[in-house]
Write a protein that binds this DNA or RNA. Structure first.
Lengths: 150, 150
DNA sequence: GAAGATTGGTTGCGATCACAACTATTTCGG
DNA sequence: CCGAAATAGTTGTGATCGCAACCAATCTTC
């Protein structure tokens, strides 16, 4: 590695605040979707599907995008399936493949919750930041992400 | 709330990259401490205790700093206690209180792992950022944190 | 100084999730 | 084509962690 072994105080400050605050932030966002019977995991699943063509996504791709293992996704699907927010659709061409498809009920729920969730993201994070900080976070995590995914 | 309901594209980019990349980053850091028989949770526990006076911390304070529930900490302690990295010390003055105290074995382990962990933080995150981005992340999460903890 | 509230910590239980092993289907090498 | 390898998804198992209920010790209030 190029850099010295330790982090200087600016770096350490950024690292520590980032790590601890991220946990708190997630819990606060979780609190804000709970009244709708959703976890953040559920919300992200619904949001991810809603942006895909035909509001459906292969299980495999969905797992990748949600950073879940395939077994993790199978279990998470149990919840959204039993609530009928998502339907399971078997692919006719390749019968190994199943799609997760947003139902009308799921779509309606998401339309109701999304503005509230995004308002939470604003209230808890974005509204406290300068435009420069927003851009810096975007570019910083973009570089970190590019390095992580070769 | 003051702001508009939706996030603009800069804000959305920052938010999404932050959320997804944070998960990936955590997994990568986890991979780097695993060879030492540690989880990131264990590492953070040891690191937190090591910075306290006498390298000991009340269970309660430790739980707060690690963002764990008290029961969560009890269970996590099982691991570090059975590895004898941490010892349980009962307070004589207030007999409700237990301290988690870093053992010599735990201290030696931490001295070995800390440089490697910090090198990972550099390699995976800090070294990819400009000084301005590091400062922006520090100030941004500081403000988010201040808002979260009233 | 005794009753009730508060604080510190553990335990029972349920939810979430990853890994490994498994089944089913498709694709590829020869 | 046929068998081997790859791909998609599920299930068994174990780890982690929060909530609620609990016990024990201390503090508070009258």
């Amino acid at each position: 590695m190029a850099g010295p072994k330790w982090l200087d105080s600016e770096e350490m400050k950024a690292w520590r605040l980032y790590i601890t605050t991220s946990v708190d932030l997630m819990k606060a966002l979780e609190d804000d979707v709970r009244p709708f019977g959703l976890t953040m995991g559920d919300y992200q699943l619904l949001a991810m599907i809603s942006e895909a063509p035909d509001r459906r996504l292969r299980m495999c791709d969905l797992a990748d995008q949600l950073r879940l293992s395939r077994s993790g996704l199978t279990r998470r699907m149990d919840g959204v399936l039993s609530n009928a927010w998502v339907a399971r659709v078997q692919d006719q061409a390749d019968r190994r493949v199943a799609y997760a498809e947003l139902t009308t009920k799921g779509w309606n729920l998401l339309r109701k919750v999304a503005p509230i969730h995004l308002a939470s993201v604003r209230r808890l994070m974005i509204d406290h930041l300068t435009r420069a900080e927003v851009k810096a976070i975007g570019s910083a995590f973009e570089k970190i992400s590019n390095n992580l995914h070769p």
